[in-house]
């Protein structure tokens, strides 16, 4: 099969980008979407043109490096699928495919389809962890975690940090990403001591990075390759209000709400 690609080309953060059309012939339905870009890049090199820059590493849907908006859908038309796991058999022969980078102020374009997602790292640095000095851990089975909680925490913990939720959100909100982390750690007994300082740290950083507010469109969940539920967003809100309330009274009840 052959496809007609319209790829966003942008030489640098400051540069003005534009869509450039490329026709790629003899595409196999078994190719992954990134492999089509590989093929195209080979052709560009042969023509002495600069290949298209795009992030990728594991090509197994787990590292979260790849990500582009394909025909208006982050990671493309398939649900629960990253761009690297998307196969060409899902496109019609001769299809026109438009490819854009994630678009958000907090994710500035580095080059072509590559964006800077370090905002996510800074959010985690603001408290997305459990403080456990190496060597100070108690015997693992000394604290029991109900299977339900462990499973629910795992549902949230699956987040691969790809940023598709932000890309898909009409408000470019990072609520699903933050909610996933807050829920993963907040659902486990180990996460309780820092539960409230954590949520405040993450939310403050999220706002500082310039992400939008969640107005409950649910697009993030639809785009999320791990299908993380927006139920976790409600949980995040709940924890956030609780933390504010606790802070008022934390001098009375030393419950770790203070950072």
């Amino acid at each position: 099969m052959k496809v007609e690609l319209h790829v966003w080309r942008q030489t640098g953060p400051a540069a003005r980008g534009e869509f450039v059309r490329y026709d790629v012939a003899d595409v196999s339905p078994d190719m992954s979407f990134l492999e089509v870009l590989d093929v195209l890049n080979e052709q560009l090199v042969a023509r002495r043109e600069e290949p298209i820059a795009f992030d990728h590493d594991c090509r197994e849907g787990i590292c979260g490096a790849c990500g582009m908006v394909i025909n208006g859908r982050p990671h493309g038309p398939e649900r629960a699928t990253t761009a690297c796991q998307l196969h060409m058999r899902h496109f019609a022969d001769g299809a026109a495919i438009w490819i854009e980078p994630w678009r958000a102020r907090a994710f500035p374009v580095v080059k072509d389809l590559v964006v800077d997602r370090s905002a996510f790292d800074r959010i985690i640095q603001a408290g997305g962890f459990i403080t456990a000095r190496t060597g100070s851990a108690p015997e693992a089975n000394s604290l029991l975690v109900p299977k339900r909680d462990a499973d629910l925490a795992m549902d949230a913990a699956q987040c691969i940090g790809c940023g598709a939720c932000v890309a898909a959100c009409p408000n470019a909100s990072a609520m699903l990403f933050v909610a996933a982390k807050v829920s993963h750690l907040g659902l486990l007994p180990q996460g309780q001591p820092e539960r409230y300082s954590r949520v405040e740290g993450l939310v403050a950083q999220m706002d500082a990075e310039g992400f939008g507010a969640c107005t409950n469109h649910g697009e993030c969940m639809a785009a999320c390759p791990k299908e993380i539920s927006i139920d976790f967003i409600a949980r995040l809100n709940r924890d956030y209000f609780t933390s504010t309330f606790r802070r008022q009274t934390s001098d009375l009840s030393g419950d770790g709400a203070e950072p």
Partner: peptide, 22 residues
């Protein structure tokens, strides 16, 4: 053995049995 202790303390959601044990 110490590795598992360390990871659990960090909040790694290892699979659990119904009784809550690893």
């Amino acid at each position: 053995a110490g590795i598992i202790d360390q990871c659990v303390a960090q909040g790694v959601p290892f699979a659990r049995e119904y009784g809550g044990l690893l």
